[in-house]
Design a binder for these strands. Sequence first.
DNA 1: GCGACAG
DNA 2: ATCTTGTCGC
Length: 231
Amino acid sequence: METQKLHSWNLSYSRAREVQSELACKVEFTRLKKNPKLIAGIDCAFSRDGERILAVVVVLRLPGFEVMEIVSASRKVTFPYIPGLLSFREAPVCIAAVEKLQTQPDVFMIDGQGIAHPRRLGLAAHLGLFLDQPTIGCAKSRLTGTYEEPPLEKGAYSLLKDDKRKQKTQSEIIGAVVRTRTNVKPVFVSVGHKCLLEDAIRVVLECAVKYRLPEPTRLAHQAVSKLKLKA
DNA sequence: GCGACAG
DNA sequence: ATCTTGTCGC
């Protein structure tokens, strides 16, 4: 697959934050294709010596979730983990892996936030722009925003809002806290690029068949964990 | 100044 | 993210 290089990844922290704010306005909120059949999951891990970052992309075909393709890439770690700047650490490897894909997924599901981010450009949104493809952010925990605990039943969800002392009556909806399994900690879903929040929630729930994490992200994590052992 | 903080 | 096995509970 082809990708776009919108900017350098070798930036100072302050410049990186500026780039995020500049790119955030390029995120597109458009309805996703009715029934996505090919869904890709992306996840990263570190080599045992901690010198490199590994990324795996798994392409699944619904409704059976058969693995259609799986690719991986490796890069030296060049950026530290700083809350809010995760994409500058993980996006490069993810992009390298995606470029190896022969299959064209309908949508990508990433382990991280979409626009549920301080400057509205989490890893999933940032990747969406570089891939110019629909992406969904499905994180295991919150980065920013406030929410009410959603009902305990699978399928239930509450909205993730961001209250900026700017708007008093309005609080921006940046994502959803989704229960993918009854009585299990919810996941944080947000739009990455070229989809709507309702699309993101629907796809995540459709892919959450038996575990807390939806199949794409879950299988990508499983695959990168194994790869980690031999690298 | 203090606390929060994706992976 | 990572160090790490069994174990309690639905």
